[in-house]
């Protein structure tokens, strides 16, 4: 949407889907979810999967600044200039939902510095089940939970599980070890989310992040259509 074309200069807000030059800006996908559910590992896997076909960048919001950014750097999934860390003042959900200004600066600066970009992944700091991204910051959001966090999480619901554009149930390989019932998790998720998609994933498995990457490709195709 063109929200601010009555005044000159750069747009005031950045839900605007266009760059100042009128071209369509990068698709922004948020990844949220509880601490330790595998958000950063999923981001790293997505980067490896997509970096040869897309121009992409990552914004991290770790509670301890730079931890996740440094993990991504160590894994060398992207060159350092394509990864930015945002401090959240000990409130990761505020930075992605209530006051998105620092994250908006970060995504715009990335587009300025290394753009044009096709895709920007915004990784939330680990939070609770109520954390969701503002629509002013991202165009689509992925919520990542894992089997080790308890197989009752899909049943409990909460905005992340219920409304995210994609729900990932991660670390399925651990299910037998932690006594989680995958079939029950899938059924509960389906009940909570109606038609919204769910991916059961193990990054150690053969298909790895392929299913999520395919979902991202589809979102991107719709975005640029």
């Amino acid at each position: 949407m063109h929200l601010d074309h009555t005044h000159h200069g750069p747009a005031a807000v950045s839900a605007d889907a266009h760059r100042p030059d009128g071209t369509r800006r990068a698709l922004r996908v948020g990844l949220g979810g509880p601490v330790g559910s595998g958000k950063t590992a999923t981001v790293a896997a997505l980067c490896r999967e997509l970096r040869d076909e897309l121009s992409l960048a990552v914004v991290t919001n770790d509670i301890y600044t730079r931890e996740d950014a440094e993990f991504l750097l160590r894994q060398a999934v992207l060159p350092p200039e394509r990864i930015t860390a945002v401090e959240t003042g000990a409130c990761p959900h505020t930075a992605i939902r209530d006051d998105i200004s620092a994250n908006l600066e970060a995504v715009e600066d990335l587009e300025d510095a290394v753009g044009p970009l096709d895709l920007i992944l915004v990784e939330s700091g680990g939070d609770n089940l109520t954390a969701t991204f503002s629509r002013g910051l991202v165009d689509a959001q992925i919520f990542v939970i894992d089997v080790a966090g308890g197989d009752d999480i899909p049943r409990k619901g909460g905005p992340g599980v219920t409304t995210a554009d994609l729900l990932i149930v991660n670390k399925t390989d651990l299910a037998p070890h932690v006594g989680s019932d995958l079939a029950r998790m899938a059924a509960d998720a389906k009940a909570q989310r109606a038609e919204l998609p769910v991916v059961l994933q193990s990054l150690r498995g053969e298909s790895g992040v392929a299913e999520v990457a395919a979902w991202v490709r589809a979102r991107l195709a719709a975005w640029t259509a």
Binding site: D4, H7, G9, S101
Partner: peptide
Amino acid sequence: GRQLLRAARASWPCAELDELAR
């Protein structure tokens, strides 16, 4: 300042704030 300007221009749009952004 940049973050505030974004919020300000959305809240009270005016030429003076646009000029500051430029």
